[in-house]
Design a protein around this nucleic acid. Structure first.
Lengths: 227, 227
DNA sequence: CTATCATTCAAACGTTCGTTTGATTCCATC
DNA sequence: GATGGAATCAAACGAACGTTTGAATGATAG
């Protein structure tokens, strides 16, 4: 049968991708050697080059595997919201949740590699390597444009450049929250068990981000903090 | 003279630190080789190991050089605010600005390495390498505790764990904003010239963060985004 | 059974890494 | 001018890197 013939053909690929997610998350791209990666995945050293071509191509495949469905989910949620609203403006918080939720939901997927990936992704926005950032940007661009339009509709009175900055801030907050797994402890000893309860976290993020997005326009610089 | 004798002794150290800031920012720690680093600094290959001991020790020295004064500035601004207030509660925005301003001001220091450092720092909060994160956490801990106390006084009605999370979000927003130099363009074509006008940026950040910090407590999860 | 093709494997490729070495240069002090 | 310790230098160290190679393996189709 051709099914059985195809399946083991992709088995090795998946083992590599899963191991790469975990190791890249833990050590970063450069610090993860092919030898550690392939031995962790239980495959031959040459397997990565055979199946993906190079280490860089593996990284690209890794992001595409998770990012495309996640952004599709975001856009689908937004489409659904707008369909239900039937032309009426959406509350900003609902748009925010449509963007935040697919990312946070992946964190609950501890068994699958979703949790690993989402933390890796959060790290990658500030990745020094230019080609990786470019890839991420390219994969995100359409989704960003879509949500920007949605926010413009939800907050027609907000100046466009202010919206862009606030989206930037929101994106940053989410990225950092997903990536900085242990920095919460820096600020205070909080119970680690609810640290990544996605529902609680979504509520907290949504409250914070909605308030920030809808904040009054910034005052021009006359706030003194010290003499 | 002993002054002239000491000065050239540290000249090479400074050249190395400055070059390291620029290169680590551009390529990351691992991707910056000692050979590129020393040749950029115009010093001998062995100079780093001679003056700092190792590449890791250089990284630590690099962070200490900038981070200690910056956090001291933050705490000093906060002290000054509280002194002026004489016991009266501080407006949250002023506390936020006391924390944000020293970081943003460094961005205006394009001639010195401040701009390089601050972007490097933003990246480092999500650095995979554990010892580097540990170092940063250690250097930040006292400042964080200090500002936490200040926020508790400013917002006595905000539950403690909620405050911790919101500080986490705020810290993330700032870090990401400082680090992600080119991601703003991802969201929209904004004029690059005002992208890092520190005053404009502080006003925007202060408005966003203050609203987020003072947001109403999160609703418990009954917000529907899609069917 | 044989031919075929994708896949796996051990081994080695050349390169680059961070670090070390031992001689050399520099300069304040005696 | 001679001395001594700090600083610099060219050169080499062993180790680890990503990648390539060519033979061995396994299942499929004729």
């Amino acid at each position: 049968m051709s099914l059985l013939a195809v399946k083991p053909r992709h088995e090795t690929r998946i083992r590599i991708l899963d191991a790469a997610e975990a190791l890249f998350m833990q050590h970063g791209f450069e610090a993860t050697s092919m030898r550690l990666l392939t031995s962790t995945a239980g495959v031959n050293l040459a397997a990565v080059n055979y199946h993906f071509g190079s280490k860089d191509a593996l990284i690209e495949a890794l992001f595409r595997r998770r990012l495309d469905p996640m952004n599709a989910e975001r856009v689908a949620a937004l489409d659904q919201l707008e369909r239900e609203a039937a032309g009426a403006p959406l509350a900003p918080e609902r748009v925010i949740r449509a963007f935040v939720r697919p990312g946070l939901r992946m964190i609950e997927d501890a068994a699958g590699g979703g949790r690993n990936f989402i933390r890796l992704l959060g790290r990658t926005y500030t990745e020094p390597a230019a080609p990786i950032r470019a890839l991420i940007g390219q994969l995100y661009a359409p989704t960003m444009e879509r949500f920007k339009q949605a926010f413009v509709k939800s907050l027609p009175e907000l100046p466009r450049d202010e919206l862009v900055w606030r989206m930037h801030f929101m994106f940053g907050t989410l990225s950092y929250t997903l990536a900085a797994t242990d920095t919460v402890q820096l600020i205070a000893g909080c119970k680690p068990e609810d640290r990544y309860d996605a529902r609680l976290l979504e509520d907290r993020l949504a409250a914070f981000l909605t308030a920030g997005l809808c904040a009054p326009l910034p005052q021009r610089r006359d706030v003194k903090i010290a003499a």
